[in-house]
Design a protein around this nucleic acid. Structure first.
Length: 291
DNA sequence: AAGTGTCCCAACCGCTGCTGT
DNA sequence: CACAGCAGCGGTTGGGACACT
């Protein structure tokens, strides 16, 4: 499929277009033996006449052993729609939340299937609304989807305080997490679905640098996610619990930023149902991004 | 059977941000 | 600070597969 391999390439005589079985084998066996990374060196070392970029793409989108084959399931489709509503065209972020699916796959699926489907649905909805609202005009903002604009932050000296202590502490962080479970699968928002409290204590050094992904959802909730590992927790930021002292992180924008520590140690877990539940509830009451 | 149109998706392109020097 | 090299991302392309006439 795809490109014509005979199409002249700028400069070098690297092969392009569809990959052969032989090339796949070479790349797979190389990466299995040496691991991912150093993509510019991969083609030469693996004996491939391809660009490193092409090798990386082939591995990530097709050869990786953890890639799930087969059609997108209904659950996955639902999740993609919710995540897209929340994140926009952040395909890699969306893919990171759907095990076994690649950003390319999700992007393609969205462009070829879901966008049409949603367009059709919105046409139907619009028509129905038009019929029912002939006399009662609605604010356009009622139907606006809330797309979170994540903004990455790398910050030092991130500190969290916890009640009753409101002192700034550079050494210790207490995190109270409230996990979502899929036990309450009714349509009610997650206020009723928070069932587990997990209390953890983390130690950080004064000059530690964090890459934490924090999405502030609604007034009281912080959706905290390390996108590099399969775990997420929702923190209740009500009454100053678990709020970062560094208000810059939160001022005026959805923030992204994070632990170097493996937050799996918190005991959190991740599954599609819990995320779906979270999204379902939070998208509807999300605060304005830049207020 | 042959021609044409449409769909799907692997692969490419160009850009951005990060890191090292 | 400037620059180069690299990885990663989202948008786009193009060709095989399939449906339709």
């Amino acid at each position: 499929m795809a490109r014509c391999p005979c199409r002249p390439h700028k400069g070098e005589g690297l092969k392009r277009g569809a990959w052969t079985d032989q090339e796949d084998k070479l790349l797979t066996s190389y990466i299995m033996a040496r691991g991912e990374g150093k993509w510019t060196q991969v083609p030469k070392a693996a004996g491939l006449n391809r660009s490193g970029k092409s090798c990386r793409l082939r591995w990530l989108n097709y050869l990786r052993p953890d890639i799930k084959r087969g059609n997108i399931t209904r659950d996955e489709e639902d999740l993609i729609i919710r995540l897209h509503k929340l994140l926009g065209n952040r395909w890699s972020l969306i893919a990171g939340r759907i095990p076994g699916r690649t950003d390319n796959e999700i992007k393609n699926y969205w462009n070829t299937t879901l966008s049409k489907k949603l367009r059709t649905q919105s046409c139907v909805t619009t028509t129905e609304q038009h019929k029912s609202n002939k006399s009662t005009a609605r604010e356009p903002s009622d139907t606006l989807s809330a797309v979170i604009q994540t903004k990455p932050w790398r910050c030092k000296n991130v500190v969290m305080r916890h009640p009753p202590c409101h002192q700034i502490e550079f050494q210790e962080v207490d995190v109270t997490t409230q996990l979502f479970t899929n036990q309450s699968q009714n349509s009610s928002p997650p206020s009723g679905s928070r069932v587990n409290n997990v209390h953890e204590h983390h130690q950080f050094n004064k000059n530690d640098s964090f890459d934490v992904n924090l999405l502030r959802l609604g007034n009281n909730n912080v959706f905290w996610s390390d996108f590099n590992c399969e775990s997420s927790v929702a923190m209740d930021a009500h009454d100053d619990q678990c709020q970062p002292i560094d208000q810059v992180m939160f001022s005026g924008a959805w923030t992204t930023s994070c632990f170097e520590e493996d937050i799996d140690s918190i005991g959190s877990y991740w599954d599609m149902d819990s995320l779906a539940l979270l999204l379902e509830s939070e998208v509807s009451d999300v605060s304005p991004v830049n207020s």
